[in-house]
Design a binder for these strands. Structure first.
Length: 309
DNA sequence: ATAGCGCCCTGGTGGC
DNA sequence: TGCCACCAGGGCGCTA
């Protein structure tokens, strides 16, 4: 399940294969994979054809693929991709028949193809004009908003942009993440796990790393958010940053479908302490890992290291 | 505003 | 062996 570390790994592996490549043709096999403009796959083709990829960026679980008229030019369009559960974005050799569940193919000028595959069809591609993204493009790709043609106010997203994109909280590694998490925890009565999964609070955390961070911080996932003190909020963010950094270094977690931009699995699944390990011993104390539904999600925790509230 | 829940979608799995 | 109910879950829309 691509979360921040997996999307970041896809970004990194895609970067050298994509940057500088010109889009020669676009083939959409499943129209519903195109979230914007919705129901108009031909517009996606028209918007991308002939443009050259700039280095890709990331914001939360969204991958940003900016394109320009020519290499090094200002970004004109941005292909924003959310992989959801089972989406894959890979650069493949061209001339081969597409694998099953290949929904979109971009033919590149080096003979290869950027392919979007998604067994469960939750993932989406969104095409924007660069200026429509404003501040987000700057945050994701390090491109100054001015170069993207954004207005002074950073620009407001178009009405047909995915709602989640307009409300993204700070990146967990951003300095403002500490205040954002502490404030959200203090304000909300929902289980702490629900707050961690809320992309408006912090961007990029999903089920795996929420469970792992809570375990490392010794906090039970069902603990009411507001019951945590300021120092526990700091501990939780420190644990989250630690596990995310470890996961990025390991190339992400491959429990089911996830592979990077070259089709290679990650190695973080070998280092997980609780996620997917129900019934097996907690690496810290040996107590069998428990599993329960919290915030509507399967949640893994150690009953001893993470005492219930 | 917030919390909770059902829905989407398909393949893998576990039970019988 | 075969069948099928069930599970995985991010985001979103709906309800209370």
């Amino acid at each position: 399940m691509p979360e921040l570390p997996e999307v970041e790994t896809v970004r990194r592996t895609l970067a050298p294969r994509l940057a500088g490549r010109r889009v020669q043709a676009v083939a959409v096999a499943a129209a519903d994979a195109v979230g914007r403009p919705a129901g108009d796959p031909e517009a996606l083709a028209r918007g991308l054809r002939g443009l050259v990829f700039l280095p890709p960026g990331r914001r939360g679980k969204y991958l940003f693929l900016p394109l320009a008229e020519g290499a090094g030019g200002p970004p004109r369009r941005v292909l924003v991709v959310h992989l959801r559960m089972t989406g894959r974005l890979q650069v493949c050799p061209g001339g081969q028949p597409p694998e099953p569940h290949t929904h979109v193919r971009l033919a590149l000028d080096d003979g290869r193809e950027l392919r979007f595959r998604d067994v469960r069809r939750f993932g989406r591609l969104y095409l924007f004009r660069a200026h429509e993204l404003g501040r987000l493009l700057a945050e994701a790709c390090g491109i100054p908003a001015a170069a993207a043609g954004a207005g002074e106010d950073g620009g407001r997203l178009p009405a047909d942009a995915p709602p989640g994109l307009r409300q993204l909280g700070p990146e967990p590694f951003a300095p403002e993440a500490e205040e954002a998490l502490a404030a959200a925890l203090a304000r909300r009565r929902a289980p702490v796990k629900a707050v961690l999964l809320d992309q408006r609070v912090l961007a990029g955390v999903g089920n795996i790393y929420a469970d792992e961070a809570l375990h490392r911080a010794g906090i039970h996932p069902a603990t009411p958010a507001a019951a945590l003190g300021r120092s526990q909020a700091r501990d939780l963010l420190a644990a989250l940053r630690q596990v995310l950094a470890e996961a990025v270094a390991a190339g992400g977690t491959s429990v089911r479908d996830y592979v990077d931009g070259q089709g290679r699995p990650g190695a973080m699944q070998e280092r997980l302490r609780v996620y997917g390990r129900a019934g097996r011993p907690c690496p810290a104390c040996g107590t069998p890992v428990a599993k329960a539904t919290v915030a509507g999600r399967g949640s893994h925790f150690c009953p001893r290291c993470q005492p219930p509230p």
